[in-house]
């Protein structure tokens, strides 16, 4: 006879923890970054993980951490205002309190990338979930081979973290290639989708770990381009987005095939996903 105790309890957090808002900064017309003070002074997370951010009485949304893992005294999250909760988050002021659950999910494969070239491919706000990994890699730059960041934005005015892009692009040990879908008259850079940058990026395809984040269609084509250059599927990693209500594998919303994006992802290796990415409406 089986007993209930055979199912080991591993209770996951269902209660939002109050964090005080330290600052709020506009990044783009619809995108902003919150800096939050953890109640016990430390918020440990792994690059690629996300939290469930809660506005009292309004609701909760999954948001990737965009800050530096080496500075866990602040929780940094970059948010695009697209719905009721993210609009409410835009209204908070320093000193206000928001709720946090997490961190949840899988991380970018920085250990696996040790000793190899790294290619980051980011589309739009997809740069935000990659930024903690970029910070980590640059802080331990000597561990890796070539480091390449490919970034695509809709237009020059939609480019996220421009100050840091300039800074990273100015380093001799990082290659930053940027493209926009729609240029304006001042733009002197590349025009076109980010997937096109893969072909001319300087990395050794047979010794590279790729980390890709952006809209699903952009990730699918980026992965195909990377594979086309010879990067094996298991060395390509994508961060998936799905509807999430709980973040802890209980609500069923984030299922992608048999996988729960919330705890088995959001970061997956492409060989796990490739067959499913070809099926519509999974």
């Amino acid at each position: 006879m089986a007993t209930l105790t055979e199912l080991t309890p591993k209770l996951a957090p269902m209660e939002p923890v109050p964090f005080v808002v330290r600052s709020i900064r506009d990044e783009l017309s619809d995108t902003f970054t919150l800096e939050l003070d953890p109640p016990d002074g430390v918020f440990e997370f792994l690059p690629g993980q996300f939290t469930m951010l809660y506005v009292f009485g309004i609701g909760e949304v999954p948001i990737s951490v965009s800050g530096d893992p080496a500075q866990p005294s602040t929780l940094v999250q970059t948010i695009r205002g697209v719905g009721a909760v993210t609009y409410a988050l835009r209204q908070v002021r320093p000193g206000d309190v928001v709720g946090v659950r997490g961190p949840f999910g899988t991380e970018w494969p920085l250990a696996e990338a040790d000793g190899h070239d790294i290619v980051f491919v980011a589309g739009g706000i997809g740069l935000a979930p990659l930024r903690p990994a970029i910070y980590s890699v640059l802080a331990n730059r000597q561990r890796y081979g070539k480091v390449v960041l490919l970034y695509g934005a809709r237009s020059p005015s939609d480019m996220l973290f421009t100050q840091e892009l300039l800074e990273w692009g100015g380093r001799y040990d990082v290659d930053v290639l940027i493209t926009v879908d729609n240029a304006d008259r001042q733009w002197r850079g590349a025009v076109g989708v980010v997937t096109k940058l893969v072909r001319r990026a300087p990395f050794d395809p047979h010794d590279t770990v790729a980390m890709v984040c952006g809209p699903e269609v952009m990730m699918r084509f980026s992965a195909q381009e990377l594979e086309g250059r010879g990067v094996p599927q298991h060395r390509i990693h994508l961060s998936m987005e799905r509807n999430m209500k709980c973040g802890i594998g209980l609500c069923g919303h984030c299922q992608f095939g048999g996988r729960f994006v919330c705890w088995q992802g959001p970061v997956f290796s492409y060989d796990e996903l490739a067959p499913l990415l070809l099926v519509k409406e999974v």
């Binding site: 809660y54 009292f56 009485g57 909760e60 209500k245 709980c246 209980l250 609500c251 919303h253």
Partner: peptide, 22 residues
């Protein structure tokens, strides 16, 4: 499968998260 609904009392003092079948 389930969803959650966040609500607040009219005076803004108490908030609840209700889980519902989805």
């Amino acid at each position: 499968c389930n969803t959650v609904e966040d609500t607040m009392t009219l005076d803004g003092t108490t908030a609840e998260r209700t889980r519902k079948w989805d």
